[in-house]
């Protein structure tokens, strides 16, 4: 079988996706991790472009760029070391996780190799983006709208979950940082009671 330019490009992108995906969990800094994950997504988007999916491929770039940017924003927010350039290694059940990952890969690969896969490629002259648009607002409109409503519900849910003010008082009332060791003294500061100084109780 002749090796075409598309094949070479595919394997390069696949290598990039895999290696950057692995480096996400091996790098020092969480900001680096989130942009390595973005690199993995960009590589997969490139493969999708090779697979004749111009809309999904580029939309992945757009969406994942925004999503990873938000992720990096949260990283910087939650970290003690804002620039995130200090070394860190925070893992648990490491061997088990490696085993599970390798097992998942081998299992899936075995399933792929043993299955008789369909072969009915996209015709070269098919207007795939046009088809997708007609499908989204035609036969599959209910599916599409359900996804839209789900996203709306997600937005409302996210705001409710993360909001500080709640029906039963402030979310962080009486909150206590976790102990440095199990059952030990709390790490870090304890937040002011009620925050903002509105609910000072005098005993």
């Amino acid at each position: 079988m002749a090796v075409t330019a598309a094949d070479v490009l595919f394997w390069l992108l696949a290598l990039c996706a895999g290696v950057s995906g692995w480096r996400v969990f091996a790098t020092d800094s969480m900001v680096r991790a989130s942009f390595l994950l973005l690199l993995s997504f960009l590589s997969v988007a490139g493969i999708m472009l090779l697979l004749a999916a111009p809309y999904i491929g580029i939309a992945t770039v757009f969406m994942m760029a925004v999503e990873m940017m938000v992720m990096a924003l949260f990283m910087v927010m939650f970290m003690m070391n804002p620039a995130g350039l200090n070394p860190m290694m925070m893992v648990h059940q490491h061997k088990l996780a490696i085993g599970a990952g390798v097992l998942a890969f081998l299992g899936l690969t075995a399933a792929i190799l043993l299955t008789d896969l369909p072969s009915d490629p996209v015709p070269a002259d098919r207007a795939v983006v046009h088809d997708l648009g007609i499908e989204l607002l035609g036969d599959s409109m209910l599916v599409f709208e359900t996804a839209g409503v789900t996203l709306l519900a997600t937005m409302i849910g996210a705001v409710v979950l993360s909001s500080r003010r709640g029906r039963y008082g402030d979310a962080d009332t009486g909150s206590r940082p976790p102990g440095l060791e199990p059952g030990g003294d709390p790490a870090g500061r304890e937040p002011e009671e009620g925050g903002g100084g509105h609910h000072h109780h005098h005993h």
């Binding site: 696949a14 996706a17 895999g18 995906g21 692995w22 996400v24 969990f25 993995s40 997969v44 493969i47 925070m90 893992v91 648990h92 059940q93 490491h94 088990l96 996780a97 490696i98 599970a100 990952g101 390798v102 097992l103 998942a104 890969f105 899936l108 690969t109 792929i112």
Partner: peptide, 17 residues
């Protein structure tokens, strides 16, 4: 390639604190 990504992702989801 997709299953490799799933495997790496599973490793990350299980191992990260």
């Amino acid at each position: 390639v997709a299953s490799a990504l799933v495997g790496i992702g599973l490793y990350g989801a299980l191992s990260q604190q």
